[in-house]
Amino acid sequence: MKLLVCVSKTPETTTKIQLTPDQAALDERGVNYIMNPYDEWYALVRAMELKEAVGGTVTLLNVGPADNDAVIRKGLAIGADDAIRVDATEGGSLFIARQIAAQAKEGAYDIIFFGKETIDCNGSEVGAMVAELLDLAYVGDASKLEVNGTAATVTRDIEGGVQVVEVNTPFALSAAKGMAEQRIPNMRGIMMAKTKPLKVVPAVEASPTTRVQHYDLPPAKSAVRLIDPENMDELVRLLHEEAKVI
């Protein structure tokens, strides 16, 4: 099977978000970047498991600048065979989707894996965009994937439960928790990753469709109001009369 895993780079999960003084961007000082957890833990690992079970190749794809190569190398250390980076400094979900679609079309992959969402922009839309651009089936928030030849059964998370869907290759999915277990790259993987092919290709033309005007942080919470643990009637009264939530 030819498997493509789209990976993005995001600030590490414990990052304290601070903005530049003009609020136009994230203040990147001291921010550590990682591979988006959904892409790494679930999409990439499930693709690796499938390759191990039925043979084939796992290709990583990232759209971004050269700084992203460290994240891509980590994916190669986890076990992907090769990688493509579309060299781009612009963003925007549809721009990114058009870049992925252009590469995916050329590679004729059986399954294109995405993460459920990036943990920075929380868009949860790039995978569906690529599917539409390539006229493919798409299953979002997939927590389980079983493949049998060209047929696949995908379980997707829905509100308060799951839905089991049958689909044929080629198709695209976005991976959520449950699809696989995180893998830590070993020394051999890290050494091998250094020599695996990472092809850099230019971006295709695409005009922006959205523009972030500015960012702001949630207002600081006022200090917590402590309630006597013996007096839960008082808490109920406050929730009813002050917070008006019950």
Binding site: A128, V130, E132, I158, T210
Partner: peptide, 20 residues
């Protein structure tokens, strides 16, 4: 979950800016 499967497809189909 339905919306998340649709916003991206609609944006790509209609060449639209989207905000999920």
């Amino acid at each position: 979950s339905t919306g998340k499967n649709l916003v991206g497809r609609l944006a790509a189909r209609l060449e639209a800016g989207s905000a999920p």
